[in-house]
Structure formats: C-alpha cells, structure tokens
Nucleic acid binder design. Structure first.
Lengths: 143, 143
DNA sequence: ATGCAAATGAGAACGATTACCATTCGCATG
DNA sequence: CATGCGAATGGTAATCGTTCTCATTTGCAT
C-alpha cells in the first residue's frame, strides 16, 4: 500500500541514511503536519535521536528539491515544511494560536492563471496565505 | 494636491526628522516602487545622505505601523516595502529578472473571504504572490 | 535661548540558515 | 565478510537580515 521509504530516497538520488529515514518518518507518522527545521530537530532529540541541526536543514532542503516535501515561508521568518502529497493547497494561519489549516479553491486557482496570462507571465509557482483569527472555540493553544 | 509630508508624520505621532523625510521622499519620488531596507539604505548613501542602517529599519517599521508603507515578505528572506496608496493589490514576481508587477482581482479577493468564513476564521490579512516568468520581451535585466 | 524627551548612528547582539571540514557511514566490490 | 571510496554527517564557525543598546544629537515646545 505504501512504497518502502528507501525507494523514495533512491529514486531521488539520495542514499538511504539513518537521519534521512528518521526525518521522513517524522513527517509520515508524526503528529505535526507542518514543521520548521528547529521543530524537526527538537522532535528528533525528544525521541533520543542524535541528529545534527545542520543535517536537518540539509535534509529538509534536499527533500524539498526531490519533491518529497513542500516549503512554505509564513510570516515570522522561518520556513515550515510539509509532506508533499501531490495535492496543491493554500494555507490559512491563525494569528492567535499559529494553527495552520489548509484549503483549496479552484476559483482562486483559475483566476490566478488568468491574471498571469493577461499580464504576459508564465506561472511557475504561487504562494497564498490568509492570516486570520479563529472565531470558533477551536483555537485553544495560545501562541 | 498633495499633503505636505510633515503632516503625514505628525498625524502618525512621529516627529518630522531628517531621516524620516528622506526615506519617505525616496518612496514618493524614487525610481523603485518596491524596496528592501538594504536598498533604501544604499539609495540614501548614493545620494550622499548619512543615515544609519538601524534607522532605516526602525523608520520602515514605523511607517508600516503608521500605515504609510506596506511590508511584503517575498521569497528570499528579506522584506520589501512599498508606498501604501490605499489600493490593495497582490504581486506577481518574475523569477528571471525579479521584476514585480501588481494586480488586483476581485474574484480572488471575494473567494478568500468566503473560504475564511467557511472555515470559521476572521480574515486579518492575506498575502498572495505569483512567481512566474515573463514571456514578453519586457524582461531585460537578468537576475 | 533652553531643556528634555524622542530620534539617531555605530556597533554589538540576535535568530535562522548555510558553509566548512574532519570523521563516519552506506554500499558496491573482491 | 573485509575493504575502500565517495557521499553524508555533525559540531562549530560564519553569514545574512534584522533588532537591540547606548552614548550623542535632534526636534520642538517653552
């Protein structure tokens, strides 16, 4: 049902090393879907894994280039990564608790293509974040 | 036709000092519409103005808080600022030459509101950039 | 003209990220 | 299974953008 991890790495031209497997696993089975390098590093430490911070940064970048992860630059200066599951989506970030929710709106997507075309551009990528406040009770963890 | 600069500053609770006037002027009459702190700093140096980099950062942030400037976090890790002329717009950035073009699409705007509402969020702000390549000849300056 | 709080400038400090480099590891080979 | 080589690692120094500190200067009300 699921490809064995090492295959992912091999096909990306990356040796299947311990740190890389650990990090990939963290994204696949960890509790957090969106993680910064620092968070990944801490999670690994918490499980007693000895992985250098430099390696975390390197591996995250490699995974991103290999298409395994997607990198986002939210406000706050740090990059966060998430597993690339092929389905594009944008993000809405709660300014209070930092909670991230994903959404996809085909109308927005198609309008973007139209806008770019009208201006004579060829879309390579785009980045849309909505910064907002949870109005529901589902915003428990204060920042 | 145009308010005298010092009034802008006063009403924002800011003394009209030389550095602040210089920087504001740079945005109002300078050639570049989108500038990073570093760029502002260099422009001032180029004109022989002696303004500290720390002051540039401080003033840019103050202007942003006062609503005179808008801050954007494009890819690349540095913030860029532009004059706030009241009209919201998003940006399309050329990946080759770094040229920034502005656009506004009411359909995208309204869909965002709808999406946020459906998810139980109160929009505070949003950030949309399209990263693309100029297809026209208007992309002269390589990055 | 005078005084004081606010603003400035130079450089130190900072957080996120990258570079460097000696050591270790994955893996193909005999 | 021992060996070897290049890729990967990890600790630390370095870098980059930005903020902080603090002694000095400035704007401006008096």
């Amino acid at each position: 049902m699921d490809e064995t991890p090492p295959e992912h790495l091999k096909s990306a031209g990356l040796k299947s090393t311990l740190p890389r497997l650990k990090i990939l696993d963290l994204f696949k089975s960890g509790s957090e879907r969106h993680m910064s390098a620092e968070e990944v590093y801490k999670q690994l430490l918490a499980v007693g894994e000895n992985v250098g911070l430099a390696t975390v940064y390197r591996v995250l970048t490699q995974f991103q280039q290999a298409g395994l992860l997607v990198r986002h630059n939210f406000e706050g200066g740090k990059s966060v990564f998430e597993l690339n599951e092929g389905t594009h989506h944008d993000h809405i970030v709660c300014l209070q608790c930092g909670h991230v929710e994903e959404f996809y709106d085909s109308a927005i997507e198609s309008r973007q293509k139209k806008v770019a075309a009208e201006l004579g551009f060829e879309i390579h990528d785009h980045s849309l974040q909505i910064y907002a406040n949870c109005t529901k009770t589902k915003c428990p963890n204060k920042r």
